[in-house]
Amino acid sequence: MLKNFNPNKAFFLTTKILKTLFFIFIIILIIGLTESLWISPEDYKQSHSVRIMYVHVPSAWISLGIFAFIGILSLFNFIFKNKNFSLIAKSLSTSGFVFCIIALVTGSIWGYPTWGTWWVWDARITSMLLLSIFYLMYILSWKVFEKNINQEKISSIIAIIGMLNVPIIKFSVDWWNTLHQNATVKIFSKSSIHPSMMLPLLIMTVAFALFSLIIFIMEYKAEVVKLKNKGLDRL
């Protein structure tokens, strides 16, 4: 199965679907923005500032999800020695990092009217900052060790160590007393968020996930072209 999983085949597939994905993303984003800025109700306590949730929460979810995926791919790279795993992980890292920064900045903007401060060193926020540092280290490792034969190993180790931070972020609000609120959207038990707020949150999550997929495809294609460029030198 892994033999069929190669950059050439993926390149053909991604070229065809990129424009369609972009069109779907724009439609979903417009619906999501209309829902979150206009149609969804204000919160009885936080008033309209709750609308920041519709960009803050999906960004945090996606940046966490992407890093967990990068960690798993790095682990697979060690086990199966397939270069494509590290190529996919590398292509995912930039969008993951940007989503992490969006989560931190919008969280800070939301924190000021809600808590009266832009920043607190509580478990959730600090572990999220740590995630952005791991993202930065992972991205920089690809650039700094470009000519090192152990480049893939170094970046994979950073990703695997950083992956340990993912469950810490997820459960930080349960394990420690934090200013950050507990999870309101739960997979295995009843969510405490009202459906009128859940709908725009899910639409925005789908839009953000599509955007990260589009960026991933473009980055992946650039990486494949880079590889093919090196291939021309060897002709």
Partner: peptide
């Protein structure tokens, strides 16, 4: 947005 517009719009704008 009841005075919260500056926060909401700056978060979405960013």
């Amino acid at each position: 947005m009841n005075g919260y517009g500056v926060y909401v719009w700056s978060a979405f704008g960013f």
